[in-house]
Design a protein around this nucleic acid. Structure first.
Lengths: 129, 129
DNA sequence: GTGTTTTGTGAAACGCGGCTAACTTTTTGG
DNA sequence: CCAAAAAGTTAGCCGCGTTTCACAAAACAC
């Protein structure tokens, strides 16, 4: 039920990778996140049992429910990274730090913050590095 | 050496409580953070061994080093809470969520963000609820 | 001053999210 | 087709930050 920060990261990376590559394997997620494949294996089992992902023979994909979370996370990721970059933070650092900020807010608070800061919808760039 | 999120929270709460009350005991920290006194006891031992706090017979206080971190955290806390409140988030939720955001950024990024959003120095309100 | 209540500590355990190592299964390429 | 490489799984471990529970030590209240 309660999705943790790490779970959200896994979902987000599956989302990003699927935009880039179509099909996503555990190993791709492991490389993307910089964890071992054993960690991914465990995490996928947990996320499958809670209904966020489904595992085919040789790929993983998001369920409706997982997709919703993943998109939301990615949107926030883009928002915070953009915000930090605009503030003059390097792309690399912004990306690292944005990764954590994206898990801090409720959906409601995030929407309010975005509305106030008026950065509209985040520009999707799942295909970039 | 490496101070974790929870360590920063402990330092911050010692700071806030000392502004409010003067003297701070473990039990005060426990109540403030909503953890057990055993947790505080362990955490204090760790923070003492790394030079962030000193423990007297019946009180805890920050070292120079601890004070610096604590002030920084509190400043960020006020910044993020203020930001969220301005966005229309309730004080209670803003406080909860700001608590997490304050640990995400490097000092450098935080300063840049603050400069861009132009909210000046945070207003200190350690004496409030 | 003595007994009760409050505060602090220590030991053992747990959940989480990683890791390594060993193994199985699948894919690939000669 | 088959061997080797790549991908996935399983088991066991670790560190962190909690918890509970039992106990020790102070503080407080008469």
């Amino acid at each position: 039920m309660a999705l943790r920060e790490s779970g959200e990261d896994y979902l987000e990376s599956i989302y990003v990778l699927s935009q880039r590559q179509g099909t996503v394997r555990s190993i791709d997620v492991a490389e993307y996140l910089g964890v071992t494949k054993a960690s991914v294996s465990k995490a996928m089992a947990a996320l499958e049992s809670t209904g966020y992902v489904e595992m085919g023979k040789r790929d993983v994909h998001l369920t409706e429910r997982g997709l919703e979370v993943a998109r939301q996370m990615w949107e926030r990721h883009c928002f915070f990274v953009g915000l930090l970059e605009d503030a003059g933070v390097s792309a690399e650092v912004a990306s690292q730090e944005g990764c954590h900020m994206e898990h801090c807010l409720s959906e409601e608070s995030f929407e309010k913050l975005r509305a106030m800061l008026g950065r509209g919808e985040a520009t999707d760039s799942t295909s970039e590095s």
